[in-house]
Design a binder for these strands. Sequence first.
DNA 1: CTGTTATTGGTTGTTTTTGATCAAAAGTGA
DNA 2: TCACTTTTGATCAAAAACAACCAATAACAG
Lengths: 251, 251
Amino acid sequence: MLTIERQEIILSLLREKDVVTVKEMCEVTNASESTIRRDLTELENLQYIKRVHGGASLLKKKREEPTLLEKSTINQQEKSVIARKAASFIEEGDSIYLDAGSSTMELIPFLKEKSVMVVTNGIPHVQLLIEYGIETYVISGKAKKGTAALVGTKAVDAIKEYRFDKCFLGINGIHPEQGLTTPDPEEASVKQTALSQSQSKYVLADPTKFGEVSFANVADLASVHIITTNGLSDEQQETISKQTTLEVVPL
Amino acid sequence: MLTIERQEIILSLLREKDVVTVKEMCEVTNASESTIRRDLTELENLQYIKRVHGGASLLKKKREEPTLLEKSTINQQEKSVIARKAASFIEEGDSIYLDAGSSTMELIPFLKEKSVMVVTNGIPHVQLLIEYGIETYVISGKAKKGTAALVGTKAVDAIKEYRFDKCFLGINGIHPEQGLTTPDPEEASVKQTALSQSQSKYVLADPTKFGEVSFANVADLASVHIITTNGLSDEQQETISKQTTLEVVPL
DNA sequence: CTGTTATTGGTTGTTTTTGATCAAAAGTGA
DNA sequence: TCACTTTTGATCAAAAACAACCAATAACAG
């Protein structure tokens, strides 16, 4: 086996596994430890990898993204719990629409094990999805300042080219009579289109969203499953439950 | 067997396998090691292949395409200089296609003052563009692992819906005969489409790209303006200049 | 046909790569 | 902390691959 081949194998092993032991590399390449070690020192000099005792790891760090997550740990934990529940509905091989926004972002780590296909309009989502090695498609559209969500007629048209088993949306307002609402009409259109292309429809919302009403209407409560944590008054909970499926996850 | 035949076989073997041993080449061509070695030295001088101990490999290719992070730190200053030059061609109100990759990323800060409209297939670009308050549109497509570039037929179709005054592309290989090349055929298609929709076509490339050949052909040299820094041999510079506009910016 | 040139395969000695060995260093557990 | 195990880097001899050279053959020009 050629040196370059071996090194290529080592690199691809690392891309898959993050850390690989010397023994593993020996087995895969049928080379001796000495040879592997020489390869490792070389690859390290070339800044492709980092050696660790017993093997090697990628230079690149996967632990990014804490800034956005660390912002509010309380809210974050809440979102994560909601996301975990939402993830439990996902089945192997599902095609999924992931709406822009921080709530749906939390869902991504849970997608890793299931081999799903994801379509999204959230730019930050794409980076994270790729890091987790998830098959990701992005719709076209105008990038909205602030949230980096893709919106506009092109976005709407692009969504129409897909069919989803499940979609997961964030939302700003949930109201017994006004239904689901969001501040930006353009984003509302995108959400509506995503809903129309999906078999099962899930909305991720923390309890503060209940009772709120924003400018643009997205959909009626009846059409979606809402996932939230406890924190609702019994009264609220009952009113909503009459109209739609309400999943309340304990913190 | 004719020399040319043999060399053609070697090249096609390499195109299939990336790396080939001398022995394999001997078997396939029924030639002696000496002969194969002579062929290899010749092909290497012609910049078609790269010799490695025990055989030969395609010029760089897979080995390269480092992650964005590595790229951005390495030749960052060089890229910035190139980007500044590229930006000088941009006029007020232009509609621009910005190719994925670190070279074009450097262009973004220079776009702030000119009120341009940007279409891109680079996810990291979008975040930066939005931060600078630039009107940004994203094309649809599959997000490619590693570079976070959007590729595929959807990407190609999406680009066709726009017309650009100018496009700015990154590239992996620039070769007098092989033209502009890049490792991923899917990305090559995207670049080709972008070129076809653009009035003026610019390629941003540091000097290391010259003489390199990657797997997939993008375009001939003649069709584009190439912007680079000094670092080319006079010989290279002359060869390229015969075929196309070459802007060499001093560091 | 003859002398010249180019191309080929084999041989030489040299360089590079490899696997084994072992003492030193690093990690592990009590 | 101190033994104990694992991993590491250095060294060395064997094997592989190399460049340089040589002779034989094929292609060519006059």
